[in-house]
Lab assay of single mutants.
Amino acid sequence: GIQEIVAMSPELDTYSITKRVKEVLTDNNLGQRLFGESILGLTQGSVSDLLSRPKPWHKLSLKGREPFVRMQLWLNDPHNVEKLRDMKK
Rank of each mutant, 00 (worst) to 15 (best):
Y15D: 14
L42R: 08
Q3I: 06
K63L: 07
W57Y: 04
S46L: 08
N29R: 11
E4P: 05
L51M: 09
L12G: 02
L84D: 00
Q32L: 14
E23F: 05
I5Q: 13
Y15S: 10
F35N: 02
L42P: 06
K19V: 09
L75A: 01
M87Q: 15
L34R: 07
Q44F: 12
T18W: 03
E82M: 06
M87Y: 13
R65T: 00
W57L: 01
G41L: 04
V6I: 12
R70W: 02
P78G: 05
I2Q: 06
P54H: 03
S52C: 10
V69C: 06
R53L: 05
T26C: 14
K55L: 11
S61V: 02
T18F: 01
W57C: 02
L25P: 00
P54Y: 00
E11D: 14
L42Y: 06
D27G: 12
V69Y: 11
K63D: 09
R65I: 01
K22L: 09
S48A: 13
Q72I: 04
M87A: 13
Q72R: 10
E23N: 10
P78I: 09
G36Q: 08
Q72A: 13
Y15P: 05
L50C: 12
W57E: 02
M87K: 14
S16R: 11
I2F: 13
L12K: 05
M87I: 13
G36A: 15
R65H: 04
S38F: 07
I17E: 02
F68Q: 00
P78F: 05
D27S: 13
Q32M: 14
L75E: 02
G41H: 15
Y15R: 09
E11M: 11
D49M: 15
A7L: 08
W57A: 00
V24G: 00
W74M: 00
G45Q: 14
N28K: 08
L42W: 06
L51S: 02
W74Y: 04
L84Y: 04
L75H: 02
N76P: 03
I5T: 13
F35W: 06
E37D: 06
M8D: 14
L25T: 01
T26A: 15
G36R: 03
G45W: 08
S9K: 07
E11C: 09
S16E: 14
I17V: 15
I2W: 06
E11K: 15
R53V: 08
N29L: 10
A7D: 11
W57P: 00
V21C: 05
D77I: 04
M8A: 15
E11S: 08
V81T: 07
Y15E: 09
H58I: 09
D13L: 02
L12N: 03
E37Q: 07
K22W: 05
G41Q: 06
D13E: 04
Q3N: 14
G1T: 07
M87R: 11
S38P: 02
I2L: 08
N28G: 05
G36K: 04
Q72T: 05
R85M: 15
V81D: 00
V24L: 13
I39V: 14
M87P: 11
L50F: 07
L62A: 13
D77Y: 03
L62E: 13
M8V: 13
N76K: 15
L60Y: 11
D27Y: 11
V81Q: 03
L60C: 05
Q32T: 15
K63G: 09
I2A: 05
D27V: 14
R85E: 07
V6K: 09
Q32G: 05
V21Y: 01
L42T: 10
V81N: 02
L25E: 04
D77H: 06
A7M: 12
L73A: 13
L73V: 12
P78M: 07
V24Q: 05
L50Y: 02
D49Y: 07
K63P: 06
N29D: 10
Y15H: 13
P10D: 13
S9E: 09
G45T: 13
G31E: 14
H79M: 14
R33M: 10
T43N: 14
L51A: 01
T43S: 14
I17C: 02
E4T: 09
K89P: 06
L50G: 01
K83R: 10
E37M: 05
L73F: 12
Q32Y: 14
R53E: 12
